[in-house]
Every structure is written in C-alpha cells, then in structure tokens.
Design a binder for these strands. Structure first.
Lengths: 242, 242
DNA sequence: TCAAAAGTGTTGACTTTACACCCATGA
DNA sequence: TCATGGGTGTAAAGTCAACACTTTTGA
C-alpha cells in the first residue's frame, strides 16, 4: 500500500521541473489608499510610468518579490513610495484577466489602506502622486477603476461594524467629523441624533473632555478611539478571521 | 512637456525585460468545494500527490495557465477533476506565505464552491477523492486548513442574505432540509417557527404543491428556488459587486 | 444679532426572539 | 399507539427611522 502510493508521488523538485512553464506569471500588489479631506473621500494615485498608459493615473503597486510574503508586499510598497509605515491594510481580492497588463501576464492582489492625510506627511519621491476625489475617476490605467470599486465596496461594509474608519481621522476628532466621514464613504446623509446614538452604542470612543478650538461655530467635544481597538495590521485582521 | 514625460516612460517590452526576474512565481487556484450530506457540511478533498505531503489530504487545485483568466481556472479545475460544470464559485482570497509550497514559490487564490453531492455524480478520475466532514479536519497539506476556514467564514456571511445555499440542495427540498443545512453551516440550532417566517420573508421560494414521499414521518411540503435567483456563475456574482 | 453647528428624547414602525400545541404519517 | 417531525401565532423586547428645539460660539 505504501509502495503503491509512493509510486504515484513525485517530489517537489520533480513537480517544479514538470511545471516550469507555469512560472511565467508575475504577481503584483496594488494599494487602494483612501484618505479623507475636505469632507471627501480621496484615493492616492500616481501617474503611470508605462508608455501604453501615458497620462493615465494608476494605483501604487509593485511586483511581488520571490522571497517576499504576499501580504507583506503592500507594506513595502507603501513604505517605499510614501514613507508610510504601520498603516491599516487589508486584502480585498485578486484580479487576473489575461490581458490586464501590457507587460505580460501579471495577476494582481488588491489591498485597501486607510490613512490620515494630514498626520502622515507623505515622503513622496515622485511628484506625480496625487489625492483624487472618488467622483470623476476616469481614464485609470489597467483595471484600476474596477479595483477601486471593489475596495470601496469592502470599505463600506467594514465600517459598519469594525472600528477601522478611525485610521482616516486624526487622533482627536469631533462627532461631526466622524459623521462627515461616514457620509462621504457611504454616499448618503445620516441623521445626526441617530448617528450619535449608534456610535455611542458601539462603545468605540473615549470622551477626551476637550473641545475643538479651530472652528467658526460652536465647538464640539473631542473624542479618541479607545485604546486597544485599533486594528491596523493585516496580521491582526487575519487573526480575527480565524 | 510631452517629450518630458515620454523620456521617463518605458514600453511594456522594456519593463518586462527589466522585471524578468519576477516571473518566477507561479499562481495556483484552490477550490473549497462544499457539499451537504447526512445533516453535515462536507468538503471535497484529494490525497496529495506530493511526496512532502504523503498521506495528507488537500484541496483540488492547479496552477493557472499563462493564457487563462484567473477566475476561469477554478472552473477548469472542477471540470477536469470532477466533471462538474456550471457550478457556483466565488473568489475568497489569496494566500502567499513564502514557504507555503515545497515546489517553489506558489501563491494561491482560493475559491469556494457549492454543489449538490447527490445530483452531481462526480466523475472522479482519481479514487483518492473523498467528502470530509468539517469536524476533525487535520493534517491537511499546505495551508489548506486555513483556506477552508476562510471559505467557511465567507459562506456563513453569504448565506444570510444571498440565495446561494440552494446550490447545496436538490431541486426540490423541504423546509426541514433547508433548516438542517443552515444549522450545519452556522453550527447553531435555529427555532423552527422563526426560521420559517424569516425564509418566507425573503421570498426566495416557490411552493411546489408537492410532498416529500420518502420520509418515515409526516411528509413536508416541497419547495424550489424561484427561477431567476440562482447565482451560479462567478461572473454574475461579480456584477452584483459593482 | 446672525450663521452655523452642538447637543439632546420620544414616538411609531418594524424586527427579533421565545415559546407550545395539535396534526399527519409510517413503523 | 408511538415516534417523528409538520405546521402554525402571539406577546414582549429590542432596534430603527423620523423628527425640532435650545444652546454655544465666532464673525
């Protein structure tokens, strides 16, 4: 019986050789980096450096290295391209239409990231990087429009019952800012009283006993996310999935 | 200005050459095929044909071909390995730890599939294929245990508001069978009266005015999924996401 | 004193849960 | 006649949506 089985088995080395033709696909990661400014949800895009997509905007991404975890690659991309470290990242899905990339067969895994535009001064090495409003996104390179849509979809679901949205806000924020942000992401207006009730119920926030001081109207109370709730590592998110 | 940009741009051909080292990662798909039998949720596994995993069970999967859409690959795998066509499939996520595969660097994209064990007589070309109960899954090859967990997680969410569960049942079924199935997937007992109310509310079912005839107790009414509701193509699922 | 937003409760509609009895069938 | 599940309604608790007035601040 054992002999029987082992006759059919092949070593990994043999398998690799027999499949060597398959090692002709590259895999990339693309980051959909959301930010919030001026009551609008934004996404960070870069001018494509491919001739085929001259003038078009694209997501920040890169090929995955042979000795690099898939889920580590988007962290590297963010670090290298924007200087950001320790950000919230979550895998959304993989996109692999045959002709999605003009350089050859490249399958990409998309991640979404939430960052605070003000806090993180981007060390942008390339000046052709820009925060785009999510309205009027057109003429994107590759299938990046579709990827952004999927990530937005995922974001909308996730903010409803996980405390991820706070990655988009400064440490201290008012309930108005939080509500504006929910509205920007969901694309709908929310009732103020009901919104405050719902947030209070979730028990995500600590009241700081401080007030806004830079607004041209009655200042609101400032809050911060309760410590221990911030899930800003993909690894922690993965734990939750288990 | 135009000249300025084009100086920095590279053609896809040039890019491909400069990145040729990256085309050393293979990508595979793995299918988590769920079935329902004996009031239990099952998953279809195959004995690994790799020496490194001798005796261990693994998911049905294969490397993605260079000229094959990523999302088409799991359909091919199912067709080749089980003779199944036109099944429900949905992408769940990609797994890419560096050493997850002993043959080399292989990143895999996981899909979950729902099929009716009885209806589809599997044309199994290999007799080392088996329907496993989800309890006592151990000693799986690769990271397949973790992949199954992720897919189960997704399944649990999806059955709550999309009519996908019916892919696991025969054309005609009773409400008891449906409830047993929900219970098996969710791992909890449900109240019969409340369950029936909730299902009625969803308006997914047509009453067939027929009765069970093979049960050792009072027979229940038979129902079928309303026509037009069955989402059994990944493409249609993707439409919904948009 | 005006404009802008802060802060705050109640009601009605709806949803969810818990729970028990009689009925039809086959063995 | 027994065992098994089929089939059904109601009441209490909880959640959700709609809605308006007074207060505080800066300009």
């Amino acid at each position: 019986m054992t002999a029987d089985i082992s006759k059919k088995l092949k070593t990994a080395e043999v398998e690799k050789i027999s499949h060597i033709d398959y090692f002709k696909i590259a895999i990339s990661v693309d980051c959909v980096i959301f930010g919030f400014e001026n009551k609008e949800l934004r996404v960070l895009l870069i001018k494509s450096d491919l001739e085929e997509f001259a003038g078009k905007w694209s997501l920040l991404g890169d090929l995955v290295k042979v000795d690099e975890d898939l889920d580590s690659a988007p962290y590297r991309v963010l670090r290298q391209r924007t200087g950001l470290d320790d950000v919230f990242l979550q895998q959304v899905g993989s996109f692999g239409a045959i002709n999605r990339h003009p350089s050859g067969r490249v399958i990409t895994t998309a991640y979404y990231s939430l960052i605070n535009i003000r806090n993180h001064k981007l060390e942008i090495t390339d000046n052709e990087v820009h925060w785009h409003s999510l309205k009027n996104l057109k003429d994107l390179a590759f299938d990046h429009k579709q990827i952004i849509e999927s990530c937005l979809q995922r974001l909308r679901i996730q903010i409803m019952d996980e405390p991820v949205i706070f990655n988009l806000l400064p440490e201290k924020f008012s309930l108005r800012e939080l509500q504006d942000l929910y509205q920007a992401i969901l694309g709908i207006k929310l009732d103020r009283r009901n919104f405050r009730k719902k947030i209070a119920l979730k028990n995500w926030l600590d009241d700081l006993d401080e007030m806004e001081d830079d607004v041209p109207h009655r200042p609101g109370k400032l809050y911060k996310l309760k410590t221990g709730l911030k899930k800003n590592k993909l690894i922690e998110a993965a734990e939750k999935v288990k």
